[in-house]
Structures are given as C-alpha cells and as structure tokens.
C-alpha cells in the first residue's frame, strides 16, 4: 500500500480504512493491557468510556447531519482509544466522554469527517481537556501496588526512576504512555504490516533526544519519559494530519521532536508532546507546499 497518498480524497473507501484502523487497534492492545497491568481496572474503564463516547458521538453526529453512518470504519473507535490512553487512569467518566465527543464532532465532524480534519482529533481533545479542567489532567495516580495515592511523573522529577522502570512502565503517567515495551511491540507490528512507515517515529524521537541533550537532559531518559514514544508512534503518524511528501515528513518529525525538547525544558507544563504534534499538524500543509512541486515534477519525469 502506498502511504504517501493525499489523505483527503483517498481514504474514504470504508473497507481499506477499516483494515488500517483494525491494525492500529491491534497495535494499541499491548498498551491497553500494560495500562491495566500498571494501574488496575480504573485504566480500562477510562479507555472504554472515551472509546464508547467517541463512537456514539460519531454515530449521532452522522445521523443528525443526515450523512451515511460510517462508524464501522472504526476511525472513531481508534480516536477514542488513543484519547483514553492519553488520560490518567481513573479520570472522571464525564471528562473522558466529553473528550471523545469533542474529538469526533468538533475537531473532525465539523470539518467534514474522516480525512478532512487538519489536526489530530484525539490530541486536540486532550489539549481542550487540559485547558478546561487542568486539575484532572495533571493528577497522576501511582501505579497499583505502590504505597501512594499520587506520584510525580518522571518528567516532574527527573532521575527518580531507573531506565528499567521507565521501560517497563511501573511509573505514574497517562495510561498508554507508561510502558515503552508495549509501545515498541505496537510499533513493530504497525511497521511490519506496513500500516505506518518507521520514518516519523524514529526521526521525532531521535530529534527530541538530541535536542534535549543539547538543552541538558539525558537523551535516554528523554526518549523513555512521558508521552514522547506513544505520541511519535500513534499520533504523529496519523495519515490525515501529517505531510504527504517524504521530505515534508522528515521536517515535520524533526520539528516536532525539537518542539518537544523546547517545551519540556521551558514551558510551564512538564510535558509538551501534545502541543508539539498539534503545532506540527498545523504546519503540515505549509511543509507540503514547500516540497510538493518538486515531488510532482519528479514523478512526472519518471513516468515520461
């Protein structure tokens, strides 16, 4: 499958979309399982609520606007799942539900539906939740079995966790982002099934680690802390909101990594992956403009 297609006109065939989305769901399952292992069933409840809300939201929106109901393409389920995995375990149910509805209706539906949104729905919903109810999104429950109610994330107190802890995920954080092993399993699955290319995740993590190192952070800890790996694998790679051209994707990924390093070092929030990817999404049309002409010309030349 050619992954550098223009997203808007081409991803509308429900069959191929469903296969892609099914692959993403399978790749996310290790993260869900790891999240439940780390945080208990509260994590499962949060993820389920946001997923169900996103699917119901899409269903109701498409029915209300008299469109063909296409929830069976599973894209709303993936959006809800990714949003849920971005939340802290045990977030209030209404928070997860509102986030799911905001993602599929405001960020995607108002712009025309799948393929027409210019920004990643799950991430925009997370940014909305963080702006609206900051106390729930900065309150991280400790892993189950640890003797504390809340705890500092690795980004809030660097150096308090070993590399093995960071890798396996018995640390506080968002449900899906803590276990790097599970994310890597999902990444390998997505690359092997050719659902995504390795380019964006690898470039983004490498760029963040390198820039973080220049700004004085441990590169290994940078790569393994917070939501960097999860965001790079599952959100920065969204076909609809990343550039279509290969050089555009390189600049996009390296730029997003740079922004992650800058936000972690200087902003008021300990984590900046959400904002870094959103800003990269917003710049994607401009990046495509810079590289499109050359690529089109190139293809024409090859065919002739």
């Amino acid at each position: 499958m050619n992954l550098h297609l223009s997203p808007a006109p081409h991803v509308h065939s429900p069959q191929s979309t469903r296969v892609l989305m099914l692959n993403v769901i399978v790749a996310l399952l290790p993260c869900v399982i790891a999240g439940v292992w780390v945080f208990g069933f509260a994590a499962l409840a949060t993820v389920l609520v946001s997923t169900v809300a996103a699917v119901l939201g899409e269903l109701v929106w498409q029915a209300l606007t008299k469109q063909k109901v296409r929830v069976d393409d599973l894209s709303a389920a993936v959006t809800g799942l990714i949003l849920g995995l971005n939340l802290p375990a045990g977030a209030p149910w209404w928070l997860a539900a509102l986030g799911g509805v905001f993602a599929v209706v405001i960020v995607k539906g108002l712009f025309g539906g799948l393929g027409d949104n210019f920004i990643n729905p799950a991430l925009a919903a997370r940014a909305m939740l963080l702006a609206s109810w900051p106390k729930y999104l900065t309150h991280w429950p400790a892993p189950a079995g640890v003797d504390a109610v809340t705890a500092a994330t690795p980004l809030a107190s660097p150096g308090s966790y070993t590399t093995a802890q960071l890798f396996l995920g018995r640390i506080p954080g968002a449900i899906g982002e803590v276990c790097k092993l599970a994310i890597l399993i999902g990444f390998v699955y997505l690359v092997v099934t050719k659902t995504i290319s390795w380019r964006i995740p690898v470039a983004m993590v490498a760029s963040a680690a390198l820039c973080g190192w220049v700004l004085g952070a441990n590169p290994v800890a940078t790569a393994l802390s917070g939501g960097l790996l999860f965001g790079a694998v599952f959100m920065a790679t969204d076909y609809v909101t990343c550039p279509m051209t290969v050089p555009g994707q390189w600049v996009y990924a390296v730029g997003a990594g740079l922004l992650v390093a800058i936000f972690r070092r200087f902003s008021v929030y300990p984590e900046g992956v959400t904002y870094a990817i959103l800003l990269a999404n917003i710049s994607a049309p401009l990046l495509d403009r810079c590289f499109r002409r050359r690529v089109y010309g190139h293809e024409k030349g090859e065919k002739a």
Binding site: I106, V107, L110, F111, F118, I119, A124, A127, M128, L130, A131, L259, I262, F263, F266, S267, V268, Y269, G272, T274, Y275, A276, L278, L279, N281, I282
Partner: peptide
Amino acid sequence: PIALISASLIALAFMGFTGIA
C-alpha cells in the same frame, strides 16, 4: 465559521508555549 473554529484549535495548540517567555 469554519475559519473561527480552525483558529480556536490553533489557539489551543499555541497554549503549549505558556511559560516559555
């Protein structure tokens, strides 16, 4: 209307810069 809604989402993304300067 859609330009306003787009601006709203971009404004959300720009909140990431809070505290940088």
